[in-house]
Nucleic acid binder design. Sequence first.
DNA 1: TTGTAGGCGTTATCAA
DNA 2: TTGATAACGCCTACAA
Lengths: 337, 337
Amino acid sequence: MERRSRVRMLDVARAAGVSHSTASRALNGHPKVSATAQAAVADAARELGYVRDLRAADLASSRATTIGLLIRAAERPFYGALAAQLQTETEGRDVDLLTASGGDDVPRQTRAVQTLLGHGVGGILIASGRASAQAVEYAASFVPTVTIGLGLVRPGVDAVHVAAESEIGLAEQVSRAGHTHVAVTASSNELAHALHARTANFLTSLVVSEVRTTIIASRTEDSRQLRDGLRAAIDAGATAVMAGEDMAAVRILEYLDEWGVRCPDEVSVTGFDGVGPYRSPLFGLTTVAQPVEHLAKEALDLMERRLRGDQTTIADIRLPGRLVHGRTLGQPPGART
Amino acid sequence: MERRSRVRMLDVARAAGVSHSTASRALNGHPKVSATAQAAVADAARELGYVRDLRAADLASSRATTIGLLIRAAERPFYGALAAQLQTETEGRDVDLLTASGGDDVPRQTRAVQTLLGHGVGGILIASGRASAQAVEYAASFVPTVTIGLGLVRPGVDAVHVAAESEIGLAEQVSRAGHTHVAVTASSNELAHALHARTANFLTSLVVSEVRTTIIASRTEDSRQLRDGLRAAIDAGATAVMAGEDMAAVRILEYLDEWGVRCPDEVSVTGFDGVGPYRSPLFGLTTVAQPVEHLAKEALDLMERRLRGDQTTIADIRLPGRLVHGRTLGQPPGART
DNA sequence: TTGTAGGCGTTATCAA
DNA sequence: TTGATAACGCCTACAA
């Protein structure tokens, strides 16, 4: 491919026989440009294949056409779907997304935020269930910041996430099905705010319903821990397991399958997220589908408002998820005739 | 959050009692800076929470610290995993990723490329199975371009994708299992180059093995078409279905399940991609796992080489996938005793 | 080793 | 309506 050495606005201006100022105005649709100049510039630009340098434009006008997205584990359906949706939503508006991957520790998160800032993003979206308060506040000290799906509300930082009612509602389904001893997974990662909040909501609801609970502690990296905890919980008499996310729920289903424990006849399982393949009827997972589209839309609306300088109170938007009735939640063995 | 009005390099320089040139050199780790100045600048920068404006830096040095990624449907496990891996790989190197979502038609793809170019990316990665030749060549006419997973090799454009042998190998597994009539899905979208190539490889291999083939035409958006085609193929006697991607394979499994057709006892099914949840033993999918990590690494290696000005021949790198033996491929009904 | 001056590609403020 | 001219924040000869 012959690689055209980048054509600048000045080149367009010359070709159109005007000054670069006029070219700039013409290309920006400025009102006070003669139709003649307007046309000449437009023609020249098309002819030369001109593409405006947004870095220079942003720099000169000290505004930003870019907003940063700090995302965790984009290979996971939930985050992947969120990123995709944000991308899509973003196309209609006049901003572009610069993405940095989260990193699961504070220094990396901070560095990612710095990278984003270095590129002059006008705002930062943090889509991560494990962003540290530190990184979030660091970002917020520079530009408007919105967290998505983080179960942690920081002063001065807008937040959008799934409503606690959806988590409570799922737990209610489990207790209503008749289970009197339920195991709940809990992350032992201190940054997993979203999971912690979820676990707490599950537990609260179960306790209110006078259901006995057992906690299965686990960390994403250690599957043995989950496996052993699950075994122990079942041996202790738990007839249902509420996982904090579909990924864990599926792993649990796999273990049960391996052990020959039937689901839901012997043990019921619920998940959370309900995105992509996890929604397949083949899994038949009883779960809550995160309102991914709404989350993305609300987050960007919030961001746009902030970028326009709207200084009203900090928002903490909670959107309802959708309960997905699958085959993995049934009555406890005792309740069967 | 108190929002510090952005601190500039000049501020750092002043605080350190040196000129901005010295500050610049110090911050860039330039060799000829006195230890005193070096330390003073570093201290001042830390103190003030300085973050370098990369746009300005790139502009001034007319280099690029950013490369663009044009990705299709990041909500899908394969592309999501690819994007995530590219992000991760990218962290070790000294570039950042600016992401734009593909768009499934030529004008949108071109616009996405322009957006990327506008931000001054030094190169463009196109991770899409349906990028148009036009968009690819447009990108390549400006900056080094590498396609990933696109089954289309354009002159002057580097490409990285899964080896045809992996696709052929999968088809061989099917014919070796004894199937003599196999249905293969084919996308009716003209831009679906990756799928077309895959279908062709499947068919070629099957024909060579003297297996009768039936084509199930479908487009992603139209599930009825897939359903009807599948029904017709089975009625015509096909005992195995090779889907172009896991997503379609799972949909096929769902239909079979719905119809009470047992898999693999009555009909075998294979997929492609083998990423994320699709890998679950619960699906038990016989498929080929794309070498996501290798794809990402090779693509970035290639890009780095180009950015360093390496003008050697265009690369067309093909990486082997890993055959995943699941439960969905078995012998045809007739072969059972 | 350091500072001065010019330039990267735009936008924005002036006069004209 | 237009065109100089000065920013924007940074890098980089060149000179000191």
